[in-house]
């Protein structure tokens, strides 16, 4: 769901060790990279390395059918052109129910068929969904290894709150990191020190830095990145001057990392 805000479709690259996804948004400003290791799944099997090209907008709509207690099983057969999702309620209070349809989800603008509403209403039961797989050229080159000058670690809920609040006030934000202070400031068209609305940084913030960094970013993207906050208690902001920002959420068996190109003065 976090990825679908940034990219509409992408390849899930599956191998024996993990599932990975890397895709750039249409405007080539942000890139999202996700990895979920095999131990992160209750059971995991991959007989053959294969890319699963998925319309993320469609996938997100289907995932909305799931409740927290549902176990979701994803399957793709060899040479298959559908991704098969099965939701199974942990407690089978109701008698087993099977629901299946082929949904050609590539046309995201098309409305759901009426029976989709029926499917939602019957949860938590047993639902079987298929999503068409599309072939898409993957981004073959991985993001180059970068040594960052600063790393700021803070509670993800605080980062979410800061960027959300500041997005109400402006379109851009400047992030400055010095030895003891992280300053996240809203920028106005004619910014001056007096015009900036500084947000206080809460406790639990760790700053690691080699040199002072000051970069400006589009808040819209940071707000979208922060939607991954529920995946991890902490978020790391890795920055160097004139280098894309890395916003990293690490969880037990994987990560979601978002890269954002800075804004620069003319």
């Amino acid at each position: 769901k976090s990825c679908s805000i940034l990219v509409t479709d992408a390849n899930f690259e599956c191998n024996e060790e993990n599932i990975m996804l890397q895709a750039m948004d249409n405007s080539h400003i942000a890139l999202v990279s996700v990895e979920i290791g095999a131990p992160g799944f209750t059971s995991y099997r991959c007989d053959r390395t294969m890319p699963l090209g998925v319309d993320l907008t469609s996938l997100t709509k289907v995932l909305r059918c799931a409740k927290d207690e549902n176990i979701c099983t994803l399957k793709a057969a060899d040479e298959a052109d559908v991704l098969n999702l099965v939701y199974d309620a942990k407690s089978a209070f109701f008698s087993p129910f099977f629901f299946a349809f082929m949904w050609h989800g590539r046309d995201a603008s098309s409305p759901f068929p009426p029976f989709f509403l029926l499917c939602s209403a019957l949860l938590p039961l047993f639902i079987h969904l298929n999503i068409s797989l599309s072939s898409q050229t993957p981004i073959t080159s991985s993001w180059p290894e970068t040594k960052y000058d600063t790393r700021v670690t803070l509670p993800s809920a605080e980062f979410t709150r800061i960027v959300r609040d500041l997005s109400q006030l402006g379109e851009h934000v400047r992030i400055e990191v010095s030895k003891e202070v992280v300053r996240i400031s809203k920028l106005k068209a004619k910014s001056s020190a007096e015009d900036e609305d500084n947000d206080s940084i809460p406790t639990g913030v760790v700053i690691e830095m080699n040199q002072h960094v000051s970069l400006t970013f589009s808040l819209k993207y940071l707000v979208n990145f922060s939607k991954s906050g529920s995946l991890s208690g902490e978020v790391q902001l890795l920055m160097s001057n004139d280098v894309p920002l890395l916003v990293a959420y690490d969880f037990t068996q994987g990560y979601i990392r978002c890269y954002l190109a800075p804004k620069i003065g003319d």
Binding site: H28, I29, V243, P244, Y259, A261, I264, D266
Partner: peptide, 14 residues
């Protein structure tokens, strides 16, 4: 005036 850089410009830097 701020100008949005694209990620591809950083890719090309290698």
């Amino acid at each position: 005036q701020l100008k949005q850089k694209s990620l591809t410009s950083f890719f090309s830097k290698g």
